[in-house]
């Protein structure tokens, strides 16, 4: 388990952000018709997921406030039982918005002892979107939605299990 350290504040992914800015700059020079709507779309996405960012910040703070690192490690760490798997599965299903919006919270949980296989379960189970289930039923039918959801749930757990096996066997 990695211990949480008080690192000095530093921006992460600066060069990645700079590369994206340069990409936009080049696109604005040579293909303005694509660059402008792309930028507008990005702003639209940012505005739409801002509330999710707020929820993630609040959720991270609440977790850190009410739970000690050793408690989190107890629920999701090496010694966690089947409950840890169910927490990860439920977390993945409930979590709303794009995957990258949850990276800060998951990184925080990981630094406090969350197992990597449970992270895999969380990511895999995100395919089930409860608010979008009616839409899926409308597009593909009830039978398809039920069968797919069941396989996603089983598949998420199996993926986590395989990752854990590979990790323990030192193949990773």
């Amino acid at each position: 388990m990695k211990k949480q350290q008080n690192k000095p504040f530093a921006f992460r992914g600066k060069y990645f952000f700079l590369s994206v800015c340069i990409l936009y700059g080049v696109l604005f020079l040579f293909n303005r018709e694509s660059a402008q709507p792309a930028l507008l779309k990005s702003v639209h996405i940012l505005v739409r997921i801002l509330p999710i960012f707020v929820v993630v910040i609040l959720f991270t703070a609440l977790l850190n406030y009410f739970l000690q690192p050793r408690q989190i490690a107890g629920y999701l760490g090496r010694d966690s039982s089947y409950a840890g798997w169910l927490w990860a599965l439920a977390g993945g299903i409930i979590s709303h918005g794009p995957m990258y919006a949850w990276y800060p919270l998951l990184e925080d949980l990981r630094s406090q002892g969350m197992r990597d296989e449970l992270l895999v379960v969380f990511f895999a189970s995100r395919t089930i979107k409860i608010p979008l289930l009616p839409m899926m039923v409308d597009c593909f039918g009830l039978k398809f939605t039920i069968v797919l959801s069941c396989y996603i749930l089983i598949g998420s757990l199996v993926q986590g299990y395989i990752y854990g096996l590979l990790n323990r066997s030192k193949l990773l």
């Binding site: 992460r12 994206v20 990409l23 930028l39 990005s42 702003v43 910040i57 991270t60 794009p98 990276y103």
Partner: peptide, 23 residues
């Protein structure tokens, strides 16, 4: 405050991804 700062530190990374998604 600590959570917000951790999130803020990741802002360039997230903004870069959002920019790519739009593109």
């Amino acid at each position: 405050q600590k959570s917000a700062l951790a999130f803020l530190a990741m802002a360039p990374l997230l903004l870069g991804v959002i920019g790519l998604v739009g593109l």
